[in-house]
């Protein structure tokens, strides 16, 4: 069964149309990368998936049910920044999900349960390669290590879908390549369904199984908000004709130039 379904989904702010007529189905285990110019609704789409904003029209279904209208533990997220809590150590950050689940009033766990959560968290930290830094605070970790920690923190809750909002945008190229490897191996191991937003079209092509390009097929330079963005390409990654990347690059580049000139 499809894990995410979009049926004629629109997002508007007043008379500004951000997304229009989105229709797509995503199966469990797919890795969808989303690229597009700034201002083409990538972030709005992510907010719809997260539940921090609601669609103006149409339906967005998770496992056949309307998506909850606020963030909850069915969806995990890793942001570009501020993804981990800076007042907790790496281990406490990863244990947090379990503690919240088992202690609705205090949000802290004790005794045997704490031991168990610690054990699970240590295993999770090991799988993202952070077993040497379990007692460090986030400010003592490098940017790449912080994002590894954020992945561990999100994945230990076993979310139905994992959302990644330009998670590697602030990292150095070498570190980024390591993170790609890590994300791919976690995705395979844990059978995750992933939506990842990225600025980097090459990254979008390299990672995942499916690439969506958010772009404005109709664009009026005098009224850029009159028409919304749509998914202009929906490609199975790794099996598309040569030249597609060039086309996408050109089209996204044009849109972003038009939008940028106006701003």
């Amino acid at each position: 069964m499809a894990i995410i379904e979009m049926k004629n989904l629109w997002k508007e702010y007043g008379d500004q149309v951000v997304l229009e007529r989105l229709n797509a189905t995503v199966q469990e285990g797919e890795f969808v990368t989303i690229v597009g110019a700034s201002g083409c609704g990538k972030t709005s789409f992510l907010k719809l998936l997260l539940g921090t904003e609601q669609a103006s029209r149409g339906e967005l279904l998770l496992d056949g049910q309307p998506l909850p209208g606020e963030p909850d533990d069915s969806r995990g997220i890793v942001f570009q920044r501020y993804s981990v809590l800076n007042h907790l150590t790496a281990l406490e950050n990863v244990m947090l999900g379990g503690e919240l689940q088992h202690s609705p009033w205090l949000g802290f766990s004790f005794g045997k349960r704490r031991k168990q959560l610690q054990k699970d968290a240590l295993a999770m930290l090991e799988s993202v390669g952070l077993s040497h830094a379990v007692d460090k605070y986030p400010h003592e970790l490098s940017g790449g290590m912080q994002q590894r920690l954020a992945l561990a923190q999100a994945l230990i809750k076993k979310p139905r879908i994992l959302l990644l909002d330009e998670p590697f945008g602030a990292l150095d190229p070498g570190i980024r390549a390591d993170m790609h490897k890590l994300v791919l191996s976690l995705w395979k191991e844990q059978r995750l369904t992933v939506f990842m937003i990225t600025h980097d079209i090459n990254e979008g092509f390299y990672l995942g199984t499916r690439l969506w390009v958010f772009d404005k097929p109709r664009l009026d330079p005098q009224a850029p908000g009159a028409y919304g963005a749509r998914v202009t390409y929906d490609l199975p990654v790794g099996d598309c004709e040569s030249g597609t990347l060039t086309n996408i690059n050109r089209s996204v580049g044009n849109t972003s130039r038009v939008l940028h000139d106006i701003l």
Binding site: L50, T52, E70, P71, D72, D73, R75, G76, I77, F79, R81, Y82, S83, V84, L85, L96, G97, L100, Q101, G107, Q153, A154, K157, P159
Partner: peptide, 13 residues
């Protein structure tokens, strides 16, 4: 940061 508040909600808080 809004991100942290959203993050906690996605952890079930």
């Amino acid at each position: 940061p809004e991100e942290q508040i959203i993050k906690l909600q996605t952890l079930g808080a």
